[in-house]
Amino acid sequence: MASTRNIVGGETTTGNERGRVLTMRDEERAKEDDSPSAKRAKFERFPLTRWELAASLGVFFVFSTGLICIYLTMPAAEYGKLKLPRTISDLRLLKDNLATYANEYPAQFILGYCSTYIFMQTFMIPGTIFMSLLAGALFGVVRGIFLVVFNATAGASSCFFLSKLIGRPLVNWLWPEKLRFFQAEIAKRREKLLNYMLFLRVTPTLPNLFINLASPIVDIPFHIFFLATLLGLIPASYITVRAGLALGDLNSVKDLYDFKTLSVLFLIGSISIFPTLLKRKRIYE
């Protein structure tokens, strides 16, 4: 049987020779991917420049140092039993271990709790919902809501300014389409921006993490961001803190936001955005 002949790179080759040529090309491509220039190109696709990365690490170092100093000045505790909870079971154990300590050293404990919460919120570390549940379990509804709203607002504000420093390339890299949508929505609602931001904070329409990072990029004034965060987080904080009072009945974090709870949040959020919708209707009439 006659062998099939092909033209590769301007030369006539048989099928076997063509296979060898393709194999050699694959090996050359693999070597190019492992070359220093290829690795450099991959690194350059990371959105932050060296100065932005250095600035973010510097801010993280300053916050971490402050947090460590606070913990070093606190009364001794069994640190082996202290860890960030990742499940409801972890949270129950942590609550039992901290209850006595919080009663004996209330001021020091609240300082440590607040600094940890704000640190996690600033650097987008998952787990603040467990900290909110812990506030309800240890401090009750009124003090728990005050602590959660205060810490969440302070942490979101820190995240806002951190994003103003280095956030634009990072958000463009992580959520380009979501950022364009958010920017378009903000542009349409400039006159009633506070109402719209309240709606976003009350309802789970957009993740709070995204709102914290994207707000300075789409030019939301800080005073509007701050006020919407302070007021808009109260309903969800109330739900979480109340749930913290009955940790024994809670099986999962998903149980916090059932259909009924989400419906109530959207109803409250709709009230906040109602003036904007009413004004738009009058314009069209």
Results as ranks from 00 to 15, higher is better:
6 N>V: 15
10 G>L: 12
12 T>A: 12
13 T>A: 13
18 R>L: 15
19 G>T: 10
22 L>Y: 10
24 M>A: 14
24 M>C: 12
28 E>F: 13
31 K>F: 06
40 R>L: 13
46 F>E: 15
48 L>D: 10
48 L>Q: 11
50 R>T: 15
51 W>A: 15
52 E>K: 12
54 A>K: 12
54 A>G: 13
55 A>G: 11
56 S>T: 10
56 S>G: 13
62 V>Q: 07
63 F>K: 00
69 C>S: 07
69 C>T: 02
72 L>D: 04
74 M>F: 12
75 P>H: 12
76 A>H: 12
77 A>G: 11
77 A>M: 09
81 K>A: 02
82 L>K: 05
85 P>T: 04
86 R>A: 01
86 R>I: 04
87 T>K: 08
91 L>N: 01
96 D>M: 05
99 A>Y: 08
100 T>Y: 11
103 N>H: 10
106 P>N: 07
112 G>Q: 03
112 G>Y: 04
116 T>H: 05
116 T>D: 04
117 Y>Q: 05
124 M>W: 10
124 M>F: 14
128 T>D: 11
130 F>P: 03
132 S>A: 15
134 L>N: 06
136 G>I: 02
136 G>A: 13
140 G>W: 00
141 V>C: 06
143 R>G: 06
145 I>C: 09
145 I>V: 15
147 L>G: 01
147 L>C: 06
147 L>I: 05
152 A>W: 02
155 G>N: 02
156 A>H: 01
159 C>W: 02
161 F>C: 06
163 S>G: 09
164 K>G: 14
166 I>P: 07
167 G>L: 01
169 P>M: 10
171 V>A: 08
172 N>I: 09
175 W>I: 00
176 P>Y: 06
177 E>W: 13
179 L>A: 03
179 L>D: 06
188 K>D: 12
189 R>T: 11
199 F>V: 00
201 R>K: 10
201 R>C: 08
202 V>E: 01
202 V>K: 01
203 T>I: 02
203 T>E: 04
209 L>P: 06
214 A>I: 07
215 S>F: 08
216 P>E: 07
219 D>G: 09
220 I>C: 05
222 F>G: 02
227 L>A: 05
228 A>F: 00
231 L>A: 09
234 I>L: 03
235 P>C: 09
239 I>N: 03
239 I>S: 04
246 A>K: 09
248 G>R: 09
248 G>Q: 08
250 L>A: 01
251 N>A: 10
254 K>N: 04
258 D>G: 11
258 D>F: 03
259 F>P: 03
259 F>M: 11
261 T>F: 01
261 T>S: 05
266 F>S: 04
269 G>M: 05
269 G>W: 03
273 I>R: 00
276 T>K: 00
280 R>P: 00
281 K>Y: 07
281 K>E: 13
283 I>G: 07
284 Y>T: 11
285 E>Y: 03
